[in-house]
């Protein structure tokens, strides 16, 4: 009898140990892995690489569209990102504004299509690529202000954290999982509050309550992202 009791106690202990271990470790890889979304067909096959891609050092005139990009700032077109919750698609007038002066590509099929929309005064029905569920309130402005302006990090790096390496894509495609655990994994990290050259932060509250900015081991002030459910869900 004692054998059985001992055995069952042993089993229970094993179960408790293994389940708490698995609950503890399984998360990291689960949420940070890249998760390539489906390819999306857009009304115009917009070449992000051509616009935002790196210049070809061997081609200073940048004449060969296949070889290099123009390093246009993401926020030149997605201008709403620093002002509001959505990054937005630029109004057609912005596309035309440049392209009416670029004679070299004026007769290419894509640009012809673009001008067709413009002449019909019809908005291009772009499809959403990064479409969060309706109950998630992601705010571009705060992330841009926090990381581009205050931390003075390169725009493409900051945008790329969620949107992937768009400068290498033609039509954008989702690269990150965008699942909640993935978002949270970043919010739980310590981020440097400010860097020299970045926008000064004033007496700003980085925290909501419990997670106040603290000094890390290197003596740099760091803070975590908001971690209330109602920061993003309401």
């Amino acid at each position: 009898m004692h054998r059985f009791i001992r055995f069952s106690i042993l089993l229970m202990g094993l179960f408790a140990a293994s389940s708490s271990f698995s609950a503890d470790v399984a998360l990291e890889p689960l949420t940070t892995a890249d998760d390539l979304g489906p390819a999306i067909e857009q009304p115009i096959e917009f070449p992000h690489n051509r616009h935002a891609g790196l210049r070809n050092p061997n081609d200073p005139s940048n004449s060969d569209p296949l070889k290099g990009g123009m390093e246009i700032d993401c926020m030149y077109c997605h201008t709403y990102a620093r002002r509001g919750s959505v990054a937005g698609i630029p109004p057609l007038q912005k596309c035309i504004g440049c392209h009416q002066n670029i004679e070299s590509v004026r007769e290419t099929p894509r640009i012809k299509k673009l001008f067709e929309y413009w002449e019909a005064k019809k908005a291009v029905p772009w499809k959403k690529v990064h479409d969060l569920p309706d109950f998630v309130r992601f705010n571009h402005e705060r992330h841009i202000k926090r990381f581009v302006f205050q931390q003075n990090r390169p725009v493409q790096e900051v945008c790329g954290a969620c949107h992937g390496d768009v400068k290498t894509m033609t039509v954008a495609r989702r690269q990150k999982s965008l699942a909640m655990g993935w978002c949270v994994s970043c919010h739980e990290k310590d981020h440097v509050v400010s860097v020299p050259g970045g926008m000064p932060v004033g007496s700003q509250a980085y925290w909501y309550g419990f997670k106040k900015p603290a000094l890390n081991s290197a003596g740099v002030e760091v803070a975590k992202g908001p971690n209330d459910c109602s920061s993003c869900h309401y």
Partner: peptide
């Protein structure tokens, strides 16, 4: 439904 640090009683519909 849980308490936020700014003292609200939040209701998370999707949860």
């Amino acid at each position: 439904t849980n308490h936020t640090a700014d003292g609200l009683n939040s209701q998370i519909y999707n949860r």
